[in-house]
Design a protein around this nucleic acid. Sequence first.
DNA 1: TCTTGACATGTCACTCCTTACATGTCAATC
DNA 2: GATTGACATGTAAGGAGTGACATGTCAAGA
Lengths: 182, 182
Amino acid sequence: MLTYMSLRIALLGLLDATGPASGYDLAKSFERSLNHVWQAGHTQIYPELVKMAADGLVAVESEGARGRKLYAITPEGASRLRSWLVEREPTSAPRSEAALQAFLLPLLDRESAIVVVERIRAQFAERLAVLECKPRDTSRFGRYALRLGLAQGHASLAWADETLAELRGPDAAAVDDAVGRD
Amino acid sequence: MLTYMSLRIALLGLLDATGPASGYDLAKSFERSLNHVWQAGHTQIYPELVKMAADGLVAVESEGARGRKLYAITPEGASRLRSWLVEREPTSAPRSEAALQAFLLPLLDRESAIVVVERIRAQFAERLAVLECKPRDTSRFGRYALRLGLAQGHASLAWADETLAELRGPDAAAVDDAVGRD
DNA sequence: TCTTGACATGTCACTCCTTACATGTCAATC
DNA sequence: GATTGACATGTAAGGAGTGACATGTCAAGA
């Protein structure tokens, strides 16, 4: 029951790393530095912070202008965060529409398949470009995850290029002929 | 509203690729050939097939022994499947606990960080092993997605090895010292 | 002064997905 | 004959996540 809640962990991690912040700040941080790792919008973050406060993981530190609420991590929160990090066996529920399209490619004729792979490639390239433009803006944080994202991104791009080469290849290795190869 | 529904697409794809099947069969196929691309259990599949039948995308073809229900894709379903494949801009909502742990690594001392990365590495290795054992069991299908998974898996493993090397490095590049490098 | 846009917080309805529960058939083995 | 295990289908409660809507502050510039 209490074993998932990765959103909590991500929020605690940001609060621990960068100090007290408002829900608004945290939503921005998700966009800036965490978007390739975990996604969350303010509609998810605000209620979660309230629950976390009720559970003693964060404390509302002060209220500033414009109704701003500053949340700070509590010792209990910091402890839970580190326990999770050290103990939690990470799970992954892969759900990638790009991979699904790749899976279904053999349904299409070669021309359509090329169009689809080109679109997938463009998206991989864009995501990679975002990561590559990313400065060390989170100082130490995000450093390792950034590298992981870059590695996976490069590999994905390479897959797209290889696949396009195969689909376009001079030996005309059409999708339908791919059965016996490799 | 009707723009998501990747589960439907995955089910239609399997039905199109391998012919009529029961919900039970489809759940097995998800486990066997689609598990690195999209996940779904039978509790999600059974109700979805009922809705898809109501929408005319599949037809209950016959009922066999043990209450078995055979679903077949309809022309409407096949058409929708191909439209989605060609037109849909794939989206991704990355939610990886492994990447989250990587992101948060600087919270830990070096020894703990090594333990965490070793666990992440083991998981990457296991997933990769599953993919590498995978025969061409889906004939043409899954071929491209399999390669994509392999590429990403190898890249992830390489990241883990590099990260471990850095954390263990003879020049003792501890996590806390990593700020000024790169 | 007024409008724009960043700041700031929230609710609600809905979809998606997971976990646990519940039921029953049929073939093979003990 | 009884038990086990693969086959086969479902429901219900609840958590997780999204998109649309709603509200209000404050600073800067037209």
